[in-house]
Amino acid sequence: EEERTFTNEEEARKAKKEAEKRGLRVTVTKDGTTWRVRIG
């Protein structure tokens, strides 16, 4: 499991799409101005 943080919503969405392409489970949460993308 890996967690990545982004300040840019577009980049967070891109990371989510890429992980889904690899067949991984992805959770995206917004924490104030930060987007957290949890993969795995």
Score class of each variant (00 low, 15 high):
A12G: 01
A12W: 04
I39Q: 02
K16R: 08
A15L: 11
N8V: 06
E20A: 05
K30T: 14
K30G: 05
N8W: 03
N8K: 06
T34P: 00
G23V: 02
T34A: 08
K30M: 08
T29P: 00
E2N: 09
G40Q: 14
G32L: 03
G23Q: 03
T29V: 12
E10N: 09
T7R: 07
K17T: 12
D31H: 09
K21W: 08
K17D: 14
W35I: 05
K14Q: 12
T33C: 14
E10K: 11
T34V: 15
A15F: 15
E9K: 07
E20D: 04
E10A: 12
T5G: 03
T5Y: 12
R4L: 15
T29Q: 07
R4T: 07
R25H: 12
T5K: 05
R22V: 06
E11F: 04
G32V: 02
R13K: 11
V28H: 00
F6V: 02
K16L: 10
R4V: 10
D31F: 08
R38H: 10
G32Q: 04
R25T: 10
R22K: 09
N8H: 06
K16C: 13
E1W: 15
D31S: 08
F6L: 02
R36W: 08
R13H: 12
V26R: 00
R4S: 06
L24H: 06
T5W: 14
R36C: 10
K14F: 10
K17E: 15
E10I: 10
A19P: 01
T34K: 10
F6S: 00
T27N: 05
K21T: 10
K30S: 12
E2G: 08
V37Y: 01
K30N: 10
N8Q: 05
I39L: 05
L24M: 09
K30A: 07
E3K: 03
R25N: 07
E11C: 07
R25F: 11
E10S: 10
T33W: 08
L24A: 04
R36V: 15
R22E: 05
T29N: 04
T5N: 05
E10F: 11
T34Q: 10
E1Y: 15
G40P: 04
A12K: 00
E20Y: 04
R38I: 14
A19W: 11
K17I: 14
L24Y: 11
E10C: 13
K17V: 13
K17N: 12
R13N: 13
E11W: 04
T29G: 02
V26D: 00
T7Y: 11
V37M: 07
G23D: 02
F6Y: 12
V28W: 04
T34N: 11
V26E: 00
T33N: 15
T27I: 10
E2R: 10
R13F: 15
E18K: 05
R4E: 06
K21Y: 09
T5R: 07
E11Y: 04
R25S: 09
R4W: 15
E9F: 14
T33G: 13
K21G: 12
R36K: 11
D31I: 13
T29E: 09
L24W: 07
W35E: 01
R38M: 11
L24T: 02
R4P: 03
G23M: 03
K16A: 15
R38E: 06
R22D: 04
A12D: 00
G32F: 02
V37D: 02
A15P: 00
R25A: 07
T29L: 09
D31P: 00
E11D: 13
K21A: 14
A15H: 08
V37Q: 00
E2H: 12
R25W: 11
R22S: 06
D31W: 07
R25G: 03
A15E: 05
I39A: 03
T27Y: 10
E1C: 15
T7C: 10
G23L: 03
R36L: 12
E10D: 11
G40A: 13
A19G: 04
E11N: 05
G32W: 01
R38Q: 08
R38Y: 12
A12V: 06
K17R: 13
R13V: 13
D31Y: 08
E3F: 11
R36T: 12
V26T: 04
K30E: 05
R25M: 09
R36I: 15
E1L: 13
T5S: 08
V26S: 03
N8A: 04
E11S: 06
V37W: 02
V37P: 03
A15K: 02
F6R: 00
N8R: 06
E2D: 08
G32N: 04
G40W: 15
V28T: 03
E20R: 05
D31E: 12
G23R: 03
T7G: 08
E20G: 03
A12M: 11
E18Q: 08
G32S: 03
T34S: 09
G23I: 01
E1R: 09
N8M: 05
R13G: 06
E10W: 14
K30H: 13
K17W: 14
R25Y: 11
R13D: 10
F6M: 02
T29F: 13
T29W: 14
A15T: 05
G40H: 15
V37T: 01
E2V: 13
A19R: 01
G23S: 03
K17H: 13
K30Y: 15
G32I: 01
I39M: 06
K16S: 10
T27M: 07
W35H: 03
E20S: 04
R36H: 09
T27F: 09
E11G: 06
K16E: 13
N8P: 01
A15V: 08
K21P: 00
T29C: 09
K16D: 00
E10Q: 11
